[in-house]
């Protein structure tokens, strides 16, 4: 369970993306955001997005991280974004020209009730087949099998309800369905927001995967350092962020240890009634929060007693100037992104 929810864990490596400075990568992401938001204004002009997708593919290639590993991290969010965008796709009509018009279909009540009946019978038989011993025994533990089974049962119930409802209505009466109008603007919004989400999410995942957390915070501090003029606590922020990042792996270890310990005591999140599972959950989180708070208090005392505080500007032990590769990549990236706005 823990292996696929470890966000932003650094993977050591020597690919081109690892060799770039954290500052360069942060600047690139910032520039990408600005350019893509500006490009959004100019409808039906795909050049910036094509360039952005090219950079995404290039950086995946340059990161030297297994595709399978990356997909495990990206898949869930990308599917979520895609499915939520599909709804905007089917939204109401607007003034922009239509690309494609579906319907309207005129359906008689008799036809609807017949379709509902067939659907109910078909899904009902399939759902029953899933409950039969040979299939149920073999696939009981498969998540998708259980999902499919519940969906089938839901569809059966819904179709039966629809059938009952349409039976009571006058049989020859017609119901208009649709029309579904897909306009250029809808398609544009769908494509553009999907590309923006995908690019930013991939970029930031690659950033945390290829950058040492400490270097990341240092880069951020350097980029934010002009804000010191405005009396903003940049150094306090850097210290807090560093401490926070430092303790993510420790906390994950502790979670795993605690999970095992409570499992050995009979706490089981996957089996039992809901009440028992809730108890197991509380047994886990109460102990975890207590441990975390105690650790935080200890850490604060330890830091205090060593005089570890952010008084004034921190200096870096290893000053890392931007190298030729950084400048090269930054210039090419900036030119291609900005240039794509005009072509």
């Amino acid at each position: 369970m823990l292996t696929n929810m470890s966000p932003g864990i650094f993977y050591p490596g020597t690919g081109p993306l690892h060799r770039l400075q954290a500052r360069t990568k942060l600047l690139m992401i910032g520039l990408a955001v600005v350019v893509m938001l500006i490009a959004n204004q100019h409808q039906w002009h795909f050049a910036p997005y094509i360039v952005a997708v090219t950079w995404v593919l290039g950086s995946i290639f340059g990161a030297g991280i297994g595709l399978r590993e990356l997909w495990r991290r990206l898949s869930f969010l990308l599917m979520l974004v895609f499915s939520s965008l599909l709804f905007t796709f089917l939204g109401g009509s607007s003034s922009s020209p239509a690309v494609w018009t579906l319907g309207p279909w005129l359906l008689r009540n008799v036809t609807i009730s017949h379709i509902a009946l067939f659907l109910a019978i078909g899904c009902g038989i399939l759902a029953l087949a899933c409950l039969l011993p040979p299939l149920a025994k073999r696939y009981r533990s498969r998540f998708f099998f259980r999902l499919l089974r519940s969906i089938l049962i839901l569809v059966t119930c819904g179709a039966l309800l629809l059938f009952g409802w349409t039976m009571g209505l006058p049989p020859q009466h017609t119901v208009p369905l649709g029309p579904i109008i897909i306009t250029r603007q809808r398609i544009w919004i769908l494509v553009v927001s999907f590309v923006i989400f995908m690019a930013l999410y991939t970029f930031s995942t690659l950033l945390t995967m290829t950058t040492n957390p400490v270097a990341l915070i240092e880069g951020l501090t350097i980029l934010l350092s002009p804000l010191r003029r405005l009396k903003l606590p940049v150094d306090d922020f850097a210290l807090m962020a560093l401490l926070g990042l430092r303790f993510i792996p420790t906390l994950l270890d502790e979670v795993e240890q605690l999970q095992k310990a409570q499992a050995a005591r009979g706490a089981d999140l996957l089996h039992g009634t809901w009440r028992e599972r809730l108890q197991s959950f509380s047994s886990f989180f109460t102990a975890l929060i207590q441990g975390t708070l105690r650790r935080a208090a200890d850490l604060a005392t330890a830091l205090e007693s060593r005089g570890y505080r952010s008084s004034g500007q921190r200096t870096l032990l290893y000053e890392k100037p931007l190298r030729r590769l950084d400048y090269l990549i930054l210039i090419i990236f900036g030119l291609s992104m900005l240039g794509s706005l005009f072509f």
Binding site: Q257, L258, K260, A261, Q262, A264, R265, G266, A267, D268, G272, E276, Q279, S282, S283, T286, A287, Q290, G291
Partner: peptide, 28 residues
């Protein structure tokens, strides 16, 4: 196979000792 982990005192969570000790057998 009962198992007591390192620093088992950090795994206690219930508000009374009775409830804490009863947690495991209750699940049985």
């Amino acid at each position: 196979v009962g198992m007591l982990f390192q620093f088992p005192e950090s795994q206690l969570f219930a508000s009374t000792i009775y409830q804490d000790v009863a947690f495991g057998p209750q699940r049985m």
